[in-house]
Simulated scan of single mutants.
Amino acid sequence: MPPPDRRLRVVVLVSGSGTNLQALLDAAADPSYGATVVAVGADRAGIEGLARAERAGVPTFVHRVKDFESREAWDSALTASVAGFEPDLVVSAGFLKLVGESFLATFGGRFLNTHPALSPSFPGMHGPAEALEYGVKVTGCTLFVVDTGVDTGPIVAQTAVPVLDGDTPESLHERIKQTERLMLVEAVGRIARDGFTVDGRVVRFGPAVP
């Protein structure tokens, strides 16, 4: 984490419309938030997430998997580009690619992602639909530290979202996404102001305890 007199440097990775990114950009416009988005990376060109960054004057970069001879080469290039901005924290905001060993070796413990369910329930791409199919009455969203699994990392924050009568996967997911943005902004702000530590599977806000 940065020293008290410096704002937390955040690189955000996107693959689509970038609504979570926009929430972070809006929050970071207030100096008291404590964090600033220093770059936005993507795995595809021409997306709204990149346009949001460019409108905010934030540098961007794109690495498409198909432009590299191997997934490992793509991962190494992504790692180098992110590292060039010297981030304290990396946030996956709808980034639809799994990073590899090089990325996790460099940014492990400070790479965050969100999931539209209350982990460890319903991992993977279809959390809202699977929650409805299972018949749960409460689902939600999770912010976690990325590890080598799929939505399995230590949990930073969670927020519950009730399942309503008549919900569809789309309507439920939309309410989850609205809650997710608030959760992400609040958690990154706390990390910027207070720091955080990861001890096994337990994440605590605040400085490390000796």
Rank of each mutant, 00 (worst) to 15 (best):
E48R: 12
V62I: 07
G84C: 13
D147V: 01
T114R: 03
V138M: 13
G153Q: 10
P3N: 13
I47K: 11
E170S: 10
L13C: 07
R204N: 11
F61I: 12
G149W: 11
R6F: 12
A45T: 12
A51R: 15
Y134T: 14
N113V: 08
A23R: 05
T60Y: 06
G166C: 10
S121F: 13
T19H: 10
G94E: 07
T36E: 15
D5V: 09
F95W: 03
V138N: 11
G149Y: 10
L24F: 04
V163F: 12
V99D: 00
G124I: 13
T36P: 01
P123W: 12
A23Y: 03
H173F: 02
G94T: 01
V136Q: 13
L104T: 07
V138C: 10
F107T: 03
D199E: 15
E48Y: 09
V58E: 06
V82E: 00
D88F: 01
T152W: 14
L132G: 12
E180I: 09
D88S: 01
T79D: 00
H63D: 00
E69C: 02
D75R: 07
L104S: 02
A187K: 09
Y134K: 13
R52G: 08
P59S: 01
V14Y: 08
Q158L: 05
L8S: 03
P87H: 09
V99S: 02
V209Q: 15
A117Q: 10
E54F: 03
E48M: 11
E86K: 14
L112D: 03
E180H: 08
A105V: 03
S76Y: 00
A192E: 07
D43P: 01
T114F: 02
